[in-house]
Amino acid sequence: MRRRAAFSEHDMPAPSDDEALAIAFAAHDRTAFDRAYRAYAGLLYSAAYNVLGNGQEAQDCVHDALVRIWRSPQAYSPARGTLRSFLVVCVRNEAISRRRRHGRRMQMEERLAAQPPEHDQLPDSDPIERDRVRSALAGLPVEQRVPLELAYYQDKTHREIASELRQPLGTVKSRIALGLRKLAQALQPAAQADRR
C-alpha cells in the first residue's frame, strides 16, 4: 500500500510498481508479461487449483488462459482495474469453463474420492485459511448466501441458479452481486490480519 502521507498535496505520486507493470502489460511489453507472471503465478495457479482440484489441470488452465490473454492484445486495459484481479478472474473463468466441460462436481468428487490428495505437491493448508471464505459466506443473509455459493463453488450460471431456486432472474442477479460485495467486505479483517 502506498502511503499518502509520504507525499505533499502538490506532489503527484509516481505510479506504483503494480501500475507501471499494468501499463507495460497493456502495451504488450513481453518483459511485463514475465514480471506479471513472477508476481502473480502463485495466485493464478491457486485460483485454478481451487476450482479444479488437480495440479496438472490447474497448470493447463493457467497456461491456456495466459496464452489467450497475450494473443488478444486488447484484452486488458488499465481503465478496467488492476492487472492482478483481471488475471485472477481470467484464469478462474477458464478453470470454471473447463470444469463445466468436464462434467462438474460429480466427476471431480469421484476422482478425489478415488485418489489420495497430492501431498507431494501441495502441503495441507492451514484449516483457518481453508475455511475462512466459507465462514465469511456463512455470515451472509441466506437469500444472498445460497445463490452466491452456487455461483462461486458450483460454477452455475445465473440462469441455472434462478431455475434451481425458482426465483426471478433479476432477483438472483442482484442478490449474487450484493452477496459478492458483502463477502469481500466480510473478508477484509482477515486480510488485514494477514498483512500484519
Partner: peptide, 8 residues
C-alpha cells in the same frame, strides 16, 4: 476472495 483461499 480467491486470494483468501488456500494458496499454493
Amino acid at each position: 476472495v480467491a486470494s483468501m483461499e488456500p494458496q499454493h
